[in-house]
Every structure is written in C-alpha cells, then in structure tokens.
C-alpha cells in the first residue's frame, strides 16, 4: 500500500509539468496584448511598455518564459500580477476562502445526500422515495445560478436569515448559504447513487443471511447495507472535491466571494500567465491528491481491492 501511494505520488511529477506547460502555452496564445489591456484607453509610452515587457519577461520567446517561470516557481517565487501584487499573496487570500466553501459544501452533500439516499433506498416506491427523486431531478436540471439567486432572494432578502453577499474575510457562518447552493447538484447525484446502491444491496444474499443470523434491522442496514453501498458514493465525492474547488465561479460570483474561481477568471481575462498557471498548478495537485485519497479509501472500504505493488 505504501509502495502504491509512493508510485501514485511520483506520477504527479509528469502530470504537474504537462499541465503547467499546456496552460502556460494556452495563456501565451491568447489574442490581445496584456499590457494594452492593462492600461485601457490611455496607452503608455513605448519605453514604459518595453520596460514592463522586460520586467515580466514578455519579450522572451515562449519556451524561455515558461522555463524562467518554472525556475522561479521552485524557488518559491510565483511571480507578480500585473497590478504588482505577488501571486503567492493572492493565493494565500483566495484559496482558504474557496477551501472553506468547498469543504462546507462537501460536508452538506455527503451528509444529506447519503441520509436522503439511504432512506429513499430503504423505502423504495414509497412517498419519501418519490419526492426525493423529483427533488433531485429538479436540482440537476435547474442551473446553479437560478438556484443561487432564488435562495439568495428567499433567505437573504425576504426572510433576512442570511447575508446576501459574503464579507471579505468570508467567515464560516456567512458561507452556509453559498455552500448549500454549491452542493445542490452533487447532492442530487449522491441521493440517486446512494438510493440505487442501497436498494441493490438490500437484495443481496449476504443481507438475507445477516438477517437470518438474528441481527436487528438497524444493524443489518448500517453494517451490511450501508458500508457496501458507500463504495460508489465515495468515488463520486472524491472526484467532486476537485470540481468544487474549481467550479465555484458561478456561486462565488452570485455571493461576491473573493475565492479561487473569481481570481482565475479575472487573470485569464487579463492574460496574466503566471497567476493563471500558478493557480492551475495548485488545482492539479489538489485533483491528483483527491483522486489518490479516493483510491485509498476505496481499498479501505472494500478489502477485495488490493493494489498491485
């Protein structure tokens, strides 16, 4: 297992270089001059432009720019944005906020998704099950921004239970509503996944045997049905960590949260190579680590899975 983990971590190296190189190349190929965009209506003198270009290495060929960037990256220097802030500074303020939002959303969708899915699976065909299916279908088909605006209006404006926008520091309690919005779609998928898995396992031979041993119904359900049903759900959750970290752009926009999504979006528009690539690099690492975590959890939940060394 240790060997397997090490091998997977080593695999991150080529993934890291490949991803950063591709992203750097894409940002480099974006049309438009970032300096001109920076100054807008009043272009500065050619001398100033040349100076800025030299400062950001924009006068070098692409491959040199990339290598210089990577070289600095490993010295802990992620470069500066065009407005002069260091990229590591921007990251330090954006990532904790998004991480908090994503973890809260993950907790919501995992807890409520598995709970609702379990009850629906146990009462297949009954009213609770039917309603759960309808609600989950609704959440999947309605776009996130609609759900976001509706919840913002109902809870923020009409009921006044939550703030409509999140303040700069983004404390946990203000993030509850955005996290619910962010979690909504995945919640729906988890409900359906858990429900299907539970109702399959309920009919498994070993569940009948467990009942025949004289075990109580709650014990049969938690010990023999739930654990077996969680395997596919865990896989989904692991992949979801990645998308929650990255895909919060819409939700962050609605609630005015200064997280990763908004920052990357702005950086792409400005053609800020170093900012975009640094953020993406961290996201790639998060993605790979989350997937590794899933695979390890998978083996912990199902002893039949033992990874080849």
């Amino acid at each position: 297992m240790l060997w397997y983990t090490g091998k997977r971590l080593l695999q991150m190296i080529p993934v890291f270089f490949g991803a950063t190189f591709l992203i750097y190349f894409m940002v480099f190929s974006l049309p438009g001059d970032p300096i001109a965009a920076l100054y807008g209506e009043r272009p500065p003198s050619p001398a100033v432009i040349a100076q800025i270009r030299a400062e950001y290495n924009l006068d070098q060929p692409f491959i040199v720019q990339y290598l210089l960037y990577i070289g600095n990256f490993f010295q802990g220097d992620l470069g500066t944005t065009y407005s002069g802030r260091s990229v590591s500074d921007v990251m330090a303020s954006a990532f904790p906020i998004t991480a908090r939002l994503a973890m809260l959303a993950l907790a919501f969708e995992a807890f409520f998704g598995i709970l609702v899915g379990l009850i629906a699976g146990l009462r297949k065909g009954k009213l609770f099950d039917a309603s759960a299916l309808v609600v989950s279908l609704l959440l999947i088909s309605v776009p996130t921004f609609v759900i976001g605006f509706v919840l913002q209006f109902v809870f923020g404006v009409q009921l006044g239970w939550a703030r409509t926008t999140v303040s700069g520091a983004a404390p946990l309690d203000e993030l509850i509503l955005p996290a619910l919005v962010l979690a909504s779609v995945s919640f729906a998928y988890i409900v359906r996944l858990t429900r299907a898995s539970v109702s399959d396992n309920l009919n498994a031979d070993f569940v009948r045997t467990a009942t025949a041993k004289g075990l109580s119904r709650p014990r049969v359900v938690t010990v023999h049905v739930l654990r077996n049903s969680l395997v596919p759900v865990i896989t989904f959750l692991g992949v979801d960590i990645g998308s929650l970290m990255v895909g919060a752009i819409v939700t962050e926009g609605i609630f005015n949260i200064n997280g990763v999504g908004g920052t990357v979006f702005k950086a792409i528009r400005l053609g800020e190579g170093p900012t975009v690539v640094s953020f993406i690099a961290v996201m790639v690492v998060i993605f790979v680590l989350a997937n590794l975590l899933v695979d390890l959890l998978y083996a912990a939940l199902d002893p039949r899975i033992r990874y080849a060394k």
Partner: peptide, 28 residues
C-alpha cells in the same frame, strides 16, 4: 418483527445456498 428476530439464529439456524454470495465481502 422483533419476536421473529429472537427466533432467527437462536432457535432456527439457516445455511444458505451459495457460499460465494452469502458472506459480506467487506467484513472479515
């Protein structure tokens, strides 16, 4: 259901058909 639970295992044991599918694969 509760009375039946006391009968199962204690009064009436059960040996199922297919040994491959009747033990839960995720518990030792």
């Amino acid at each position: 259901a509760a009375e039946m639970q006391a009968v199962r295992g204690r009064e009436i044991g059960y040996v199922p058909q297919d040994p491959m599918s009747n033990l839960n694969p995720v518990w030792n």
